[in-house]
Amino acid sequence: MEYLFEKWFALCAYLSVFITAAIVLILIFESWPFFKAVKLSEFFFERQWTPMFSDAKFGIQPLLMGTLMTTLIACVIAVPIGILIAATLSEYVSQKTRQWVKPIIELLAGIPSVIFGYFALLVVTPFLQFFYPDLPGFSLLSAGLTMSFMILPLIVSLSEDAIQAVPGHLREASKALGATTFETIWKVILPSASSGIISACILGVSRAIGETMVVAIAAGQQPNWTLDPTEPAATMTAFMVQVALGDLPHGSIGYQTVFVVGLTLLVITLFFNFLALRFRSRMQRFS
């Protein structure tokens, strides 16, 4: 009996390895027929992604550009503000204020992404159109901006943890030498907490890359190779949702492309997760 329970517990623990393996294998397996039919050179260098047209083109670039643009906008806004807020929370405000602000921020981190999609479409876009009337109803800018609100709580919360982990004596030593709080933050705390903060930011980036509903709702549906944030363009995740909303017979070209785009997304996120883990383990070694 005991033995059976132990085996069951072990099985559940190994399940996590099976899940990862299954995700990788299923994506490769289902994309295989696609890569047999489409040359890799077309996949990487073609600038059009039109799998449903009669004259189908299979270049991943436009979808990659969409993801890159929204992620870039989100991070350019959320990373500096996030670190600034984390440092403020940890070093400038009183212990008491921090104790009630931090849970609120963690609560905000739990808002479902589809609700942020609502904000993007019905609040942020009209707000931006007020200043820039030519902005279309769907745009990379609006989706990216909304995504920055979404990843901000995550970055603040994780960076603040990293800053809190900096040993107190470093802080005190710096202040004893006459440094102001800002100089202590800038020259002592941020460098010491850098591994943890970088890991927090990479997790934010990885979250933005994989974020689906905001871009599916507010960034637009057409793959569009563009560097202009005011244009609509589909991201990798938005494309997957759009195709999945239609009928997906097993083995059809639509079915295959979803897995191909998924595989691309997997490779990119695995890379960023690996980076975040590297920085995290460095932080643990430090403290």
Binding site: V17, A22, I23, F29, A244, F259, T269, L277
Partner: peptide, 22 residues
């Protein structure tokens, strides 16, 4: 296993959808 759990927690949710679809 521990590394896997960390990695899974940062995986985009849509990939779980593809796993389930397959």
């Amino acid at each position: 296993i521990e590394l896997n759990i960390l990695n899974l927690s940062a995986m985009p949710s849509i990939l779980y959808g593809l796993l389930a679809l397959g």
